[in-house]
Design a protein around this nucleic acid. Structure first.
Lengths: 352, 352
DNA sequence: GCGCTGAAGAAAACCGGTTTTCTAGGAGGC
DNA sequence: GCCTCCTAGAAAACCGGTTTTCTTCAGCGC
């Protein structure tokens, strides 16, 4: 019948498919430069094993430029096995701590030609499944895990073999941690309070099973010990305003003698200021309050909050670097970000 | 030579390539179910044009289940032309407003089998380029644009033909807007102040070129007009604490007679409370303050902030729905989310 | 004059799906 | 008994890259 003619027609149409269409394909670039796909690909990817004349190389580069060539990410992922994307697992996006980590990770990843896919671990179990899918569908090449907790379902899986680093919340013995020097930061906070004459200190910590919070707590105790003050009181609360407020009322009930507290996070500190006020111990007169982590908000609280500022953006950046190193085959080991913390004095702390 | 043997060996190896390897491929599923790839694919994707016995269908489903089959996203994107991902463009992730929109979008997208890729428009120009790359590399199927401003570089491009909706910040005449009923929310705020006896009101607005802020401003004026109060004073400020504080001092200098203000955003409101305090007009006695948008923070400010709560998560959800409809070929038109706002009374507003 | 070697690039296989086209076999109509 | 039509599925083309293998040709030594 007419099958043959149709077939030929279709073929010709396809072969002629003008590069003026929508996107330029690699074959368009190759045709424009009078080379084959393979040469075009290898020139554009700087394949060191390729031998070409400089002139040809230039022709390909110009053709790509002229056509505005942008490789199809799916095709590339399929052929090369690399997705060019990283997943970042965060517990809570509404917390500025994590949006700052995200920002750092994002910018750094972009500079290194990777995308970042954010996953918020909201509904617990579902997020795990989602991450599994992300990995198994080949959408990402590695995981930046900011949600680590002991016994987290993620570690039960076979994902252990998949490239990953732990961001902010270290996992002991993993040798894949990127985190702030919590000891250092805690020492600064304690020393600030001591320098104002406070001797009866307390720590309002985060949840017991969050390692980053636990590190701050240990840093606090270590700092007290190094000043010969023995162990100090600690109360735990969730990482939000309510957790801070609730912990404060527990603290002041049990330890009314405390005059200075070091709070584990800024969101908690907002609740601490509130509760202190409500309990007739407004900062700084009734209680000196210093918080881990800074943000523009801190300046506008009542009273403006003294903080230990941290470099969360750098945390995100370094985590991306560590993960990419891992993808390239080098295991990096733990990365501890030190020497970046400093106390920002505002009005929530005062001499005794 | 031995080429043939090697070739055959390689082929056999590949053909035998056990599904116990790493990922199950479609061909593994097909082999397991004793059908061809095409049948397997069409069964799993519920192709309505496929004719198969129910029994075969079940065999394929079971095989996929047994092997834990997850299609390779790159391969699928390449073959089908659909990436299965949407980009969400946001101006500032550290602002909880946007993280809530993101959360809503994320959850909804997931339920509809799409990923969300977030892009923060930090460094201005670069972000535009980044979005262009995202689109042209076929990584996303559509754009959720939360960064619209008149004259934004994105609209100059040929992206107009690419599926997109505007989230939160409407663009007049685009017929692709998904936004809150700002008029309604502003009316509630104004009426709340009026109900407390305030008659000299003012509005602390966002940047002049942000349409969502402009809508609130118009809503404020409309509400005043509908109560026969003529036009009220408006001062503009950036969408952060400092912008709110600075606008407040300008306002109180020019209009000291004002007793109630409606603030365009919660971050600004923090600055407003601060500035009012600093200027000897602490809320609520010196100035009643009501803010657009609510958050847990508001409860813990001093004084706790009266807010018009909004459903930003729903905004994200509806935007995703609208965009997916568009991908499916139906142009939806503007979506205005009404009837969800209500005033949350706290202590920053009081009778005159 | 001839085989050898290396440079420069062409050709083809492959990644893992989707989608279109093709075909074997059985039922039904006449 | 033969043709047609339909069902159920097989076969193959294609998406746009990457990567491995092959080919051609010039220069060289002898």
């Amino acid at each position: 019948m007419v099958d043959d003619r149709q077939g030929a027609g279709a073929d010709r149409l396809r072969a002629n498919d003008s590069p003026a269409g929508l996107r330029a394909r690699l074959s368009d670039v190759a045709a424009e430069a009078n080379v084959t796909k393979s040469v075009a690909s290898r020139v554009l990817n700087q394949d060191p094993t390729l031998k070409v004349r400089e002139e040809t190389r230039a022709r390909v580069a110009q053709a790509a430029e002229r056509l505005g060539y942008q490789p199809h990410s799916g095709a590339r992922a399929l052929a090369s096995g690399e997705a060019g994307a990283l997943a970042l697992l965060l517990p809570d996006l509404s917390n500025p701590v994590f949006s700052r980590i995200l920002r750092g990770a994002f910018v750094r990843a972009l500079a290194r030609h990777y995308m970042v896919v954010v996953v918020e671990e909201d509904p617990g179990v579902e997020a795990t499944e989602q991450v599994t899918d992300l990995v198994r569908s080949g959408r990402v090449d590695g995981l930046l895990i900011g949600t680590a907790r002991p016994g987290h379902p993620l570690f039960e899986r076979d994902l252990a073999a998949f490239p990953h680093v732990f961001v902010n919340r270290p996992v002991a013995g993993s040798h894949r941690n990127v985190y702030l020097d919590f000891r250092e930061a805690s020492a600064l906070a304690v020393e600030h309070l001591l320098s104002l004459g406070h001797r009866r200190l307390a720590h309002i910590a985060g949840p017991v099973d969050v390692t980053s919070a636990h590190e701050r707590e240990k840093g606090y105790q270590a700092a007290l010990a190094s000043h010969g003050l023995g162990r100090g009181p600690v109360v735990h609360g969730t990482f939000d305003e309510e957790g801070g407020a609730e912990a404060t009322s527990r603290l002041l009930r049990r330890h009314p003698e405390v005059t200075g507290v070091y709070v584990s996070s800024l969101t908690q500190a907002v609740g601490v200021l509130h509760a202190a006020r409500a309990l007739g111990r407004p900062a700084p007169g009734g209680l000196s309050v210093i918080s881990f982590d800074d943000s523009p908000l801190a300046r506008y609280l009542d009273p403006p909050l003294t903080c230990v500022s941290t470099s969360l953006e750098e945390l995100g950046e370094r985590a991306v670097d560590a993960l990419i190193s891992q993808l390239e085959g080098q295991l990096v080991g733990d990365v501890v970000i030190s020497g970046q913390s400093n106390v920002v004095r505002r009005q929530s702390t005062a001499p005794v």
